[in-house]
């Protein structure tokens, strides 16, 4: 088990190195010359561009620059950026062209907001999705089952951004049922402000994601309820409640864990629409902003961090498998 985790972590690091190389290659061979970011269009001469390239170190060979870039993962660096020397503390993934600060720390400061949205949303969609899915599976073929399945398909057919936008306009702006949304630190601003600002985003994420969890857990539960071992559990004379929870649900949860692991990783990388519509200053919004401003160090840092979440989520899912299913041997 321990050896397995170590091997998976090493493999994960290799994946991240590959991702960083690709990002770096885009940096160099992509359509955007990084030096252009410092060269105002009106006064940009070829001479000035060359100077900038030299100052930024962009005229050195790519491998050398890559090694320098990666060295930020083990130590702090000093980075010359547009004539100013900037301290980039460990871990350093470069300095933003626009904000002249360490991109890692810039993104990391926004992580609590993103994490709060993701975790609260995940709790909502797991509760709504699993409960309605299991409820539908146990009443398979009844009106209740059909109502749940068709409602979930209906909600699924509405684009999430439309759903979230309408909810914001009507429930916050129009009816004022929810307070103005946004992220407030639960420690500095108090838990009520924190929950108030995020309640609607959580609910919308909960509703939007729960549809696929409802249908997925319904299917898994229907399969599990048809398993021989569930019949055995009934034949033992166990109470129906115990049969469903301890025997069927335990098996049905396995496929749900897989998609949840990946969904949660994506959510941690930033919920773009949610952050944009509800005005939450999270990582997703920072990533979007960086793309709009061709802030290449920010984009590559954002990509690397997102990739790291997905790699870790995959490892966690595999470990969870072995915890749930004793037949899975991690080796």
């Amino acid at each position: 088990m321990f050896g397995y985790i170590v091997r998976r972590l090493i493999a994960g690091v290799l994946v991240l190195i590959a991702v960083s190389m690709m990002v770096f290659a885009i940096f160099f061979y992509g359509p955007n010359d990084p030096a252009l970011a410092y060269c105002p269009e009106s006064r940009c001469t070829p001479q000035r561009l060359d100077n900038l390239r030299h100052n930024l170190g962009l005229d050195r060979p790519a491998p050398q620059q890559y090694v320098e870039y990666m060295s930020g993962l083990v130590k702090s660096r000093h980075i010359e950026s547009g004539g100013i020397s900037i301290d980039c503390n460990w871990p350093c993934l470069g300095v933003s062209f626009k904000y002249r600060v360490s991109v890692f720390h810039y993104l990391w400061d926004r992580f609590p907001a993103t994490f709060s949205v993701a975790a609260g949303g995940a709790i909502c969609f797991l509760i709504i999705g699993l409960f309605s899915g299991i409820f539908a599976a146990r009443r398979r073929g009844t009106m209740a089952d059909k109502a749940i399945v068709s409602t979930s398909l209906f909600i699924n057919a509405i684009p999430y951004y439309l759903l979230a936008l309408l909810a914001y306009l009507y429930l916050v702006q129009g009816l004022g049922l929810f307070p103005e949304t946004g992220y407030h630190s639960p420690f500095k601003d108090g838990p009520f402000k924190f929950v108030g600002g995020l309640a609607l985003p959580w609910l919308m994420l909960g509703i939007a994601y729960s549809t696929q969890y409802a249908r997925f857990s319904r299917g898994a539960m229907v399969d599990a309820l048809n398993e021989d071992y569930v019949r055995t559990a009934r034949a033992k004379g166990l109470m129906e409640r115990v049969v469903v929870r301890r025997h069927a649900l335990r098996a049905a949860i396995v496929p749900v864990v897989t998609i949840f692991g990946l969904d949660f990783a994506y959510l941690l990388a930033g919920t773009l629409f949610t952050e944009k519509i509800f005005g939450i200053q999270g990582m997703g919004l920072a990533g979007l902003d960086a793309v709009q401003r061709t802030d290449l160090p920010m984009i590559s840092a954002y990509t690397l961090i997102s990739a790291a979440f997905i790699v870790v989520a995959n490892i966690v899912v595999d470990i969870l498998y072995s915890v749930i299913d004793p037949r899975v041997r991690l080796a």
Binding site: E227, T232, A235, G237, A251
Partner: peptide
């Protein structure tokens, strides 16, 4: 009713199934 039948199942009438690999819970 199921809650009455449950007391008979396993206690007065028990069943052995065909394939013990699928009839036992793998977890």
């Amino acid at each position: 009713a199921n809650d009455k039948m449950r007391r008979i199942r396993g206690r007065e009438v028990a069943m052995i199934f065909q394939d013990p690999l699928t009839a036992l819970h793998p977890f």
